[in-house]
Design a binder for these strands. Structure first.
Lengths: 208, 208
DNA sequence: TTAAATCCGAGACGTATTGTTTTGAATCTT
DNA sequence: AAGATTCAAAACAATACGTCTCGGATTTAA
């Protein structure tokens, strides 16, 4: 199998720089497929997304989709993750609390946008497809977590946080409520919510 | 339509106590269907659950299932919610913090049990089926929330919490991290986690 | 310039599952 | 006994699946 999707691994070509013979993969088709996947996912949700519909919308043959992605999950994961690769950076304001609250506000903004539906589809589908959930964690969650660690560490260095702070616990306390409201939808998810959470969790950690 | 599922509304019979003519609904079949649904859901997850399999496992005709439940979602919601109706009471220890942490421990225990798979299926499916999510909120979340309000109010009355506490914010801060780890699965969800969250969120609220 | 390799879109194919409908029998009220 | 409603079983059309074949396009290497 020559699966070349980002999910299944194998980023670029074989180690030598030479291009193999034969017609190269159509970058145009690849992007059209990912774009149509996002588009349909915004409308229909994960379970109702059919490969047939994606192929039709992208003006592409079904076989082309099946050639490059082993299943629907890998396709959806690639579509979302490639679109969110360079997003949601952490600011450097000089205060942990405002660094965090500002980034949390950005996340909420994404969740409220049309991209939110895609994230929900990804996490919803992930509840019955471990690979889908793992792709979300590895490609979306952890990269941001690593940045968050650094942000919190700066707070420790500045004395705003105790040196023995449990960083994972703290991050789950900050982001858990956001994901909670986002996924359960029992209460509205406004950007102000970010500040309120920080008020609860980072009470004694410098200025708001 | 004469849908009689608990999800779609209309709990029992028409207001008058008289039984309508005709063969009555088979209570045996109804329970067998719900039981089989739970059983299969524990094994397979929501998207792989077929009505055919449920009917076969319950020794019941497909048409019988379709007659009483409009779709898979309603069936799953009924199956889970009927099974969790009387669960997860709040204790009265005399301290908000330990009242909350003990109930949170119970919730985590449920999430870790075989019933956790059913909840995950419900919430996962709910991401693309609004009715499913609403059923979860109305039949599971809100009843417990109402108990939680009372628990927190007792804490206010005892002076452990400020009188102007934002109860919804506080509850989301306590339970959000649990649902977060449960649904994203980026870190282990142990019962000790409940105590740690309380340590962060209820720092100054009486004994642990 | 030619041959080999790989890709492309279009669409047919058999399979599986869906939700609906029909049939004949069973059960209950009046 | 008559009328209503249920039941299990099975046939049904519709949809999506994943695979395959076809003719043609694009690229490298000989």
């Amino acid at each position: 199998m020559t699966q070349n999707s980002t999910v299944t691994g194998r980023a670029s070509n074989k180690s030598n720089g030479k291009r193999p013979p034969g017609r190269p993969r159509s970058e145009h088709s690849r992007q059209a497929i990912l774009r149509s996947t996002l588009k349909l996912l915004r409308q229909q949700g994960f379970p109702d997304l059919s490969i047939e519909a994606v192929a039709a919308d992208a003006n592409v043959s079904k076989a082309t989709v099946y050639r490059w992605w082993p299943n629907r999950g890998a396709l959806v994961a690639d579509a979302f993750l490639e679109s969110a690769e360079q997003e949601l950076q952490f600011p450097h304001t000089g205060s942990v609390r405002s660094d965090m609250s500002r980034q949390m506000r950005r996340l909420i903004r994404v969740f409220r946008s049309s991209r939110g539906k895609v994230v929900a589809a990804l996490l919803g589908g992930g509840q019955s497809d471990p690979e889908l959930l793992e792709a979300f964690r590895e490609r979306f969650l952890w990269p941001r977590r690593r940045q968050a660690y650094q942000t919190l560490q700066r707070g420790i260095d500045r004395g705003e946080l105790p040196a023995d702070t449990d960083l994972d616990l703290l991050l789950d306390s900050l982001y858990g409520p956001i994901y909670f409201r986002f996924l359960i939808r029992h209460d509205e998810l406004t950007e102000k919510f970010a500040d309120k959470i920080c008020g609860v969790v980072l009470k004694n950690c410098g200025p708001a």
